[in-house]
Design a binder for these strands. Structure first.
Length: 565
RNA sequence: CGGGGCGUAGCGCAGCCUGGUAGCGCAUCUGCUUUGGGAGCAGAGGGCCGGAGGUUCGAAUCCUCUCGCCCCGACCA
């Protein structure tokens, strides 16, 4: 490809609203342009990278025995009504009507459509297992799209769905997909971890997320520094290490804390450590108003809390509800003599000389002991894991890192097949619902994650397998005949084996060098008068910055060696 | 959804408070010089100042409405 003919509009400055590095660099490198909130054009360079990711995904999915299909993006409402998700999915589902006022949605995921496809065609256990996938544009009307391709509303996703006659067959496919995903992200040269995760709105009980490690990630993951245990913080089990403590000896005392509402304020005012404080959060749930207790220095985990309650939904109560439940304005709630059910984190049980709200304006209680002063509380693991917490599986401790979710694999079970009647006849001629699994990969997000992990001040440093071109030939001055001829010849020769970009623009050397650094092609061949006199050109590796003079005849072999091809 | 902010040339921004001919840098185009790390000089083009309504002799500027974009939102309990 000739740079002079390519739509590759690089920018010196990044737009003011770009937040994360991958977004800034993708815009500056002329890969993407925003069309609307969370909706982007992929320009030629960006499209090439996305195609590279897709190709790797496709190869590995095919190798793993899955078959590619393509489902419609516009899905009739009836299918979603059949599964019950038309009402359950909420506002992320973009709904629309056709000219006959029939209702449709833009597919954010395709369990319904694939289940419909399979129920029409599959009759017998002999036709199972089956794993079907597609690479397609999805739409989710996110509340707050951000970070460029990392959290868009429209995005490219590989989604696969498997159908099985037995749980064992699903287990095997789940492991098969786990291995395929590992190969995919290894081939993308990403640093990643597979972690245990919550299942969210998709349904099912069990899942793993594939997380690319990056500080800009939106998820926190807890991983044991000794064994292999790793989990999304939403799910990471916490093992309480503290021994039982004795009951408090001092009687509970009410102290005045005018205007002190936050843990920080009360802690500073009473000179009590946040770990000695009991944070009381009032929740509205489908099972009524409930209080959740965590230690002052801990954070409530709403997923765990909801599971402990066995509730369908939980929502932090507003001021008025707090006042109704506790008799005090927000900021002074406490578990002692509270009239609503109390669910406490295990760590709260160990507090024996604690501080908590008095359920009375401008007052807190001190010398509070959990076992003595609110014995009716139920205990569960309802807080977020912290760095240093004990691993639930071994004697190690957690470290907390940030991750970008690029892949997610689920065991769905029979949720959709039962709701939609996707059944088959087993060996005994009995009709049974297919057991399903589902497996997703964010294609654009994977490209963005690769940049988050591979860049420097000057720009992107593409891992070879994702790079839009393998090699860039850069003639320093195209007005010099010798330079131009040599560059053209090298471009022709290299193009027979590699994807090559020729920067044939009549620009100053500095401009070309800066653009080359920015778009991050792995290998650069610089052709200039100076070195040409010795019959040599300069080869520069983007990642290491290392340069070396190479004879013109050796360029091809040398570039191949650097690329490992 | 709630709170806040911003919409002025392709991009980044000033001007708005205190109403009076719309500016700067980068980018673009032309010419000359320059040519191994985002060149210099000279010149040129490019604006429904997001939209609608209002106040005013006069609105980018003040008021109202509206659309779009961005940021923050358990850790106040």
């Amino acid at each position: 490809m000739r740079y002079s003919r390519m739509l590759l509009p690089t920018l010196k400055e990044s737009p003011a609203d770009a937040e994360v590095i991958s977004q800034k660099l993708m815009i500056r490198a002329g890969m993407i342009r925003k069309v609307a909130a969370g909706i982007y054009n992929l320009l030629p360079l960006g499209h090439r990278v996305v195609r590279k990711v897709e190709a790797i995904v496709r190869e590995e999915m095919n190798r793993a025995g899955a078959q590619e299909v393509l489902m419609p993006m516009v899905v009739p409402a009836e299918l979603w009504q059949e599964s019950g998700r038309w009402d359950a999915y909420g506002k992320e589902l973009l709904r629309l009507k056709d000219r006959h006022e029939r209702e449709f949605c833009l597919g954010p995921t395709h369990e319904e459509v694939i289940t419909d496809m399979v129920r029409r065609e599959v009759r017998s256990y002999r036709e199972l297992p089956l794993n079907l996938y597609q690479i397609q544009t999805k739409f989710r009307d996110e509340i707050r799209p951000r970070f460029g391709l990392m959290r868009g509303r429209e995005f490219i996703m590989k989604d696969a769905y498997s159908f099985h006659a037995t749980p064992e067959s699903l287990d095997r496919e789940y492991e098969n997909m786990h291995r395929a995903y590992t190969r995919i992200f290894e081939r993308c040269a990403l640093q990643f971890r597979a972690v245990e995760a919550e299942t969210g709105a998709i349904g099912g009980r069990f899942s793993h997320e594939f997380m690319v490690l990056a500080d800009s990630g939106e998820d926190s993951i807890a991983s044991c520094t000794r064994c292999g245990y790793a989990a999304n913080i939403e799910r990471a089990e916490v093992r309480e290490p503290h021994p039982e403590r004795p009951l408090g000896e001092l009687p509970v005392e009410r102290v005045s804390t005018p205007g002190m509402r936050t843990i920080e304020e009360v802690s500073a005012f009473l000179k009590a450590a946040p770990s000695a404080m009991i944070k009381t959060l009032i929740y509205e749930t489908d099972r009524g108003i409930v209080a959740a207790l965590v230690r002052g220095d801990h954070q409530l985990n709403e997923f765990k809390f909801r599971n402990a309650l066995n509730a369908a939904w939980v929502r932090l109560a507003d001021e008025a509800a707090v006042e109704r439940a506790t008799g005090a304005p927000a900021g002074f709630a406490g578990p002692v003599r509270l009239k609503v059910p109390v669910y406490a984190d295990h760590a709260v049980r160990r507090i024996f000389d604690g501080v908590t709200g008095a359920n009375e304006k401008d007052a807190h209680l001190v010398h509070v002991s959990a076992a003595r002063d609110f014995p009716g509380a139920s205990y569960a693991d309802i807080r977020n894991a912290l760095a240093g917490d004990m691993c639930p599986r071994c004697e190690g401790a957690f470290e907390i890192r940030r991750g970008i979710e690029v892949g997610h694999i689920f065991k769905l079970g029979t949720k959709y097949s039962e709701a939609m009647g996707a059944t088959f006849l087993d060996e005994e001629g009995r009709e049974r619902p297919a057991i399903m699994g589902c497996y997703g990969i964010g294609v654009g997000r994977t490209a963005a994650a690769a940049i988050e992990q591979n860049h420097d001040e000057a720009g992107i440093i593409w891992p070879g397998p994702l790079a839009p071109f393998d090699c860039e030939v850069l003639p320093v001055n195209v007005n010099d005949e010798g330079t131009k001829k040599t560059a053209e010849a090298l471009y022709e020769r290299l193009s027979s084996e590699l994807e090559v970009l020729l920067d044939d623009r009549d620009e100053r050397a500095g401009v070309k060098f800066k653009d080359a650094d920015l778009i991050g092609i792995p290998v650069r061949v610089v052709v200039g008068e100076r070195n040409l006199k010795q019959g040599k050109v300069e080869l520069k590796v983007r990642k290491t910055g290392e340069t070396k003079l190479v004879g013109i005849e050796e360029v091809s072999a040398e570039v191949g060696r650097v690329l490992g091809k």
